[in-house]
Design a protein around this nucleic acid. Sequence first.
DNA 1: AGCGTGTGCAACCAGCGAGTTGCACTCAAA
DNA 2: TTTGAGTGCAACTCGCTGGTTGCACACGCT
Lengths: 102, 102
Amino acid sequence: MKSPQTLFTALADPTRREVFERLSSEGPASATKLAASLPISRQAIQKHLTVLDEAGLVTRSTVGREVNYSAVPAALADMTAWAARVDAQWTDRLKRLRRSLG
Amino acid sequence: MKSPQTLFTALADPTRREVFERLSSEGPASATKLAASLPISRQAIQKHLTVLDEAGLVTRSTVGREVNYSAVPAALADMTAWAARVDAQWTDRLKRLRRSLG
DNA sequence: AGCGTGTGCAACCAGCGAGTTGCACTCAAA
DNA sequence: TTTGAGTGCAACTCGCTGGTTGCACACGCT
């Protein structure tokens, strides 16, 4: 499992989220394919896909000379787990506080 | 409700997450207080708190001349909601795909 | 064989953002 | 009233990163 930092960093960029959402809802696609419907160059998309890959949000699979990327929404679990942990710490502190106040 | 972008951007920085976690688990604190136990300057912390505030992750409350910040973990809901939506789109696509394959 | 499409890689640019220092202001307490 | 701690604001540095262009390479197809 990658560091949570790479995950948060990957999701911080709107273009990256857009790409990730497309791969999730419309299925696997190549960098060139994605670039066709986005206002930036293929190389820019490629960089984003690399970042998403390093964050575990996407997987590569080459078919012939084409490289397709698929979304791995399961990777989002790390992020929601972090949120749940922080939220738990917060409610826990409230509980302790309330108890100490009688 | 702030834009999801401000939320993701706010959480992308490790220092900001650290600050947010501290406020969640140890209760409200001022910028000066936080700076005492972190390796960066008070002004840097202050900037981070401003970002967190604009993302709705934190609230200001001045007591005398001191300004205390409290965590608002409920703001994390927007993030988890986004994750849930993407995940739902993904499973939905799988379902449709499976159905079309008989 | 040769054309065309898709990838990979590198250099480059511009802006943003995290952090710093410095200073002015405010207000509580002696 | 003076001292000092807490805050606000501004200017500056500097590394990172999203985006670009350019070119070389690989592979499929006719």
